[in-house]
Amino acid sequence: MNDVPAPPIRKIIHVDMDAFFASVEQHDFPELRGKPVAVGGASARGVVAAASYEARRFGVRSAMPSVTARRRCPDLIFVPPRFDRYREVSARIRAIFLEHTPLVEPLSLDEAYLDVTEDLKGIGIATRIAEEIRARIRAETGLTASAGVSYNKFLAKLASDQNKPDGLCVITPAKGPAFVASLPVARFHGVGPKTAEKMARLGIRTGADLKACSLAFLQQAFGSSGAYYHDLARGICHRQVRPDRERKSIGAEDTFMTDLSDEAALVAELDRIGRHVWKKIEERRIAGRTVTLKVKYRDFRIVTRARSFPRPVADADAFVGAGTAMLRALLPPPMGIRLLGLTLSNLGDAAAPPSELPLPI
């Protein structure tokens, strides 16, 4: 009987740009370099989309209300986002990745996984490939990137965060289990805040704690995710780099300068948001069957409503109409509304036949 050769150990790189949006602004506008910069709205209702490392030293973080950020860093400089520019730079970085491997899985504009087990340039050593990519990014964009190199996606992503900014970390198969054991489980991919809280109640705070739990115990406590956590504690991850990973949804939301209660004003704002989303949907030539409305009230309580259809939504009027119908069902609001959002999901090929949604629904 012939022995079946073991599959090759994968060579995975996770590249994560350093403070990407803010770094692009500092690169394009030299007067911002070395200063605390926040990309986002400076108004009372604004939110920080990204913060430079100078701002992070004051505790400024993405998704933080602008008023809080200003309180923490009085000298903070706010700049409006320029997403077209960020997409342009991201495309240049993606082109560098593709020179080394076709197996590139973007997670966002500023990070991606690369499987370089068989690299196109024949370099053969993942660490050297990561070093070359980082050097090319710096030379061609003026920006810095951090990278993690390991034998699976889980460890590569953890590694990229180890030596930020402008750092490189390599986790070999021999070092993987020990590296995982030393980390808090809250840093593990797939362990969100609620799961981390539940693990803490069970006495699981580090990878070592997680490894000490039996598979049966984890399956009883976490159901189908138990086996996944059991593997992570041992540095095992079977997720492959998927260059064709499908986008799950496309949408947008907006926070208003003042809370809104008037129906006409709310409908007008949702129409504006929805048509902005539909423009992106058309640009990407995709279609979807589920429309989701998001409403955030003055007290920050969030309500969502969704409607799915048997066939793809036909056009902008149908998309906005579906959202408007769900919004009107929530009116008059119990209190002022500070945010509205509209999303299309259940995505597929735009060539699929559209649904004919009657308006109103």
Rank of each mutant, 00 (worst) to 15 (best):
M1P: 09
M1W: 01
M1S: 13
A6M: 08
V15G: 03
D16K: 11
M17K: 03
F20D: 04
V24N: 11
P30W: 10
L32H: 14
R33N: 12
R33W: 00
A44M: 09
A50M: 03
A50Q: 08
A51E: 01
E54T: 04
R57F: 00
F58L: 07
G59H: 06
G59A: 12
R61G: 01
R72H: 09
L76E: 03
F78L: 03
F78M: 04
P80R: 13
P81E: 02
V89S: 12
A95F: 01
I96S: 12
I96E: 07
F97A: 12
L98P: 03
H100W: 15
T101W: 15
V104R: 14
E105T: 05
D110Y: 07
V116C: 03
T117I: 02
L120D: 09
A126Y: 00
T127S: 15
R128H: 14
E132T: 07
A135E: 15
I137L: 15
T141I: 08
T144M: 06
A145E: 05
A147K: 08
K153C: 11
L155H: 04
Q162S: 12
P165S: 09
C169G: 10
V170H: 14
I171C: 11
K175Y: 01
F179P: 02
S182Q: 13
R187K: 15
R187S: 07
F188R: 08
F188D: 12
K194Y: 01
T195S: 12
E197Q: 15
K198A: 13
M199Y: 09
M199Q: 06
A200R: 13
R201P: 01
I204R: 08
L210N: 06
K211Y: 00
L215F: 08
F217M: 09
A221C: 07
A221I: 00
S224E: 08
G226K: 11
Y229G: 03
G235A: 11
V241M: 06
R242Q: 14
P243I: 02
R245Y: 01
I250F: 03
G251K: 05
A252D: 05
L260K: 09
E263A: 15
L270H: 07
R275V: 01
W278M: 05
G288P: 06
V291H: 07
K294L: 12
I302E: 10
D315H: 09
G321S: 07
G321Y: 06
A325Y: 14
M326Y: 05
L327Q: 09
L327S: 04
R328M: 08
R328A: 07
A329Q: 09
A329M: 01
A329I: 00
L330Y: 02
L331W: 04
I337L: 10
G341P: 06
T343M: 06
L347Y: 03
G348C: 05
A352V: 00
P353C: 02
E356R: 15
L357F: 01
P358D: 11
P358K: 09
P360I: 01
I361V: 10
